[in-house]
Amino acid sequence: MDLKVNDYTTDDGLTVINVEGEIDVYTAPKLREKLIDLVNKGKFHLLVDMEKVEFLDSTGLGVLVGGLKRVRAHDGSLELVCTQERILKIFRITGLTKVFGIHDSIQEAQEKRKGQK
């Protein structure tokens, strides 16, 4: 299955990345390239919407952690939207729930972001 990765930037400067499909050792490079491309374009506040992700493995986690490192180097942020238990489980197992802000919806992430400004 192909991985679909699309993005748009909201009025408040948050770049939402919609990811659809399976993120594994074969498809993860596509997400990595997207994150690198966005950072190179000066997009440092990223929100990865994982609601349509059907599978995520440690390669995908590595790509997300790599993206987080890149945006943090520019005082940016990389947060996630995810309510799927099967995906959340892998974040819990690896302790990465403490590293990523994980939201129930894009709207919730935007509201929290406004509250922090």
Partner: peptide
């Protein structure tokens, strides 16, 4: 699990993969 999930150490795919297997 990786200590605190620090962004510095959490992206080694081999150790992360083994951590996932052992956790699961």
């Amino acid at each position: 699990p990786p200590r605190g999930g620090g962004a510095g150490g959490g992206d080694d795919p081999d150790s992360l993969g083994l951590a996932v297997i052992s956790g699961l």
